[in-house]
Design a protein around this nucleic acid. Structure first.
Length: 487
RNA sequence: GGGCCCGUAACUCAGCGGUAGAGUAGAUGCCUUUUAAGCAUUCGGUCGUGAGUUCGAAUCUCACCGGGCUCACCA
């Protein structure tokens, strides 16, 4: 018989024994005091005060006629003491309590010889009998596979995982607080869509039975939120999961949390200003500091952030003087010199973007805005007046990867239709799903959309930055994993 | 997808051609101030799976499964 089964059977027997007297899974438990509250209220005159605490047994030290148990609630850990002298036959319950059980105790506060604040138990009840043993107490669970697949065990044994989860929650909370303070309202748009647009990513496909129709899971929030601008809202945002059917890596998960905001009568310069404030606000709220350690880097979020145009960045980091390169073949040769892999019939923008990714982005460690992207790779952004090859778009880079993407939103329906058509043709030629024409969206645009600045931020990546974490799997509680075959 | 690494008890790990080990957790006994409690006894394994090499494989080889790091892909 496997060991684990034996351990479980022993606990099942204890459960049976408990059932003879009391239900070890009661619905109603006594009102309790948080452990942190007992500790922070502690003064000499709270000695002997009566408290009820509820929580999980994380350590048990029995020594004959006296026993100590460490109880952990959502706030902290506290030691309790059971003595045979005080409890009589009730003391025997110690033999039915295992690590991992939830118990409720009532007793009076005192200090042991070693000055440890302790509850002297007068009343004790098992309120949830655990059947499986918790992870080992010194090291806890360290195997990343167990940590990701069984996050409950990770959370039980690793404080850090809990801190990260809380930080992620605070990040979202502080984003909401900031945007609400700026009079944005939060709206919801559909996850199941007829067209998955607003970004260039492969969507997940699902099927609605009654409609007998395939639907896509959204890859961005953009097109629906813009329809709400058309409908008359002026400052809106959404925080929600999007789904991209692409590779999994330390910075990619198939589903992740995206913030998108749209502000009417603003342009991308306004958005850049807001984004900086937003991130500084989050950092202050979540870590209380604008200097963030991440690996070997110390990221300084304070003060002004560097701004470079796309063209200047290429010049500065890759030595590409775009304005002096007149012929496509000269650019192709430059790219080849840099060791960039060139597909057949590349356009200028695609080559530039390749160089950008390989030579510029990895060097942008401190917060850096890159402004004015090529039109060809930005089908939803407004062209710069008098310079049709570039659009009013910026991306924010920190730690060498993209944090945010924003533009002055394209609101000329004729231009929009042309640009989407170009993308569709290109996608068809390359047999890729880049972006199809969303007729409903373009038609909506024809009713008039106010000039607006839009923003998209990957929240997990923001949390990674703030928490100094290198892997998105540390941020996402249940990261995508391959199904494990059971032998 | 390529390269490198990992998979041994429920958990954390050692062992790396010659009888499968430790600590934690569990069980039993002793123990009224412990807190990684202690002491003693004890239970617990298809060494990820499958083939191969070998007198002999946890150990060497190959394939597969799962995971990690990294490169590539990915707006």
């Amino acid at each position: 018989m496997p060991t684990e089964e034996e351990l479980i059977n022993i606990r099942k027997e204890k459960r049976e024994t408990l059932l003879k007297n009391n239900n070890p899974y009661p619905a109603k438990v006594k009102k309790h005091t948080k452990i942190t509250e007992i500790r922070s209220n502690f003064q000499q005159n709270t000695i002997n005060n009566q408290y009820v605490i509820n929580g999980r047994v994380i350590a048990k030290r029995k020594m004959g006629k006296i026993a100590f148990i460490d109880i952990q609630d959502g706030s902290d850990v506290m030691q309790i003491q059971l003595s045979k002298e005080k409890l009589g036959t009730i003391f025997e319950i110690i033999n039915l309590i295992d690590l991992g059980d939830f118990i409720s105790v009532n007793g009076s506060l005192f200090k042991t010889k070693t000055e440890e604040l302790t509850i002297g138990v007068e009343d004790i009840e098992i309120i949830s009998k655990a059947l499986r043993p918790p992870p080992e107490k010194w090291h806890g669970v360290v195997d990343p596979e167990i940590r990701y697949r069984s996050r409950h065990l990770d959370l039980i044994s690793n404080k850090r995982s809990r801190q990260i989860a809380i930080a992620f929650s605070k990040t979202i909370q502080s984003i909401r607080n900031y945007l609400h303070s700026k009079d944005f309202i939060e709206l919801q748009t559909p996850i199941l869509q007829e067209n998955a647009g607003g970004a260039a990513a492969k969507p997940f496909i699902t099927h609605h039975n009654q409609l007998n129709q395939d639907l896509f899971l959204r890859i961005s929030l953009e097109l629906h939120l813009k329809r709400l601008l058309i409908g008359g809202f002026e400052k809106i945002f959404e925080i929600g999961k999007v789904f991209r059917n692409e590779g999994i890596s330390y910075k990619h998960n198939p589903e992740f949390t995206l913030l998108e905001s749209y502000e009417a009568y603003a342009d991308y310069n306004d958005v850049a200003k807001m984004l900086k404030e937003l991130i500084q606000f989050c950092a202050q709220e979540v870590v209380g500091n604008l200097e963030i350690k991440n690996g070997d880097h110390i990221i300084n979020l304070a003060g002004e952030w560097e701004k470079l145009t796309y063209i200047d960045a290429l010049h500065k980091f890759a030595g590409i003087d775009y304005l002096k390169i007149k012929e496509d073949k000269d650019l192709i040769n430059k790219a080849k010199d840099l060791g960039i892999h060139i597909s057949k019939n590349p356009s200028r923008s695609i080559i530039l973007d390749e160089i950008m990714k390989k030579f510029v982005e990895p060097k942008l460690i401190q917060p850096t805005f890159i402004f004015d992207y090529p039109t060809e790779i930005s089908p939803l952004a407004k062209k710069i007046d008098g310079n049709e090859n570039f659009v009013e778009r910026f991306e924010l880079f920190i730690l060498g990867y993209e944090f945010a993407n924003a533009y002055s939103e394209l609101n000329d329906p004729i231009d929009q239709r042309e640009r989407m058509t170009e993308q569709a043709i290109k996608a068809k030629n390359k047999d890729e799903e880049i972006e199809l024409i969303d007729e409903d969206f373009v038609e909506a645009l024809e009713y008039g959309m106010p000039p607006a600045g839009g923003l998209g931020v990957g929240i997990e990546r923001l949390a990674m930055l703030l928490m100094g974490e290198h892997s998105i799997r540390e941020i996402i509680l249940f990261p995508a994993m391959r199904t494990k075959e059971t032998n």
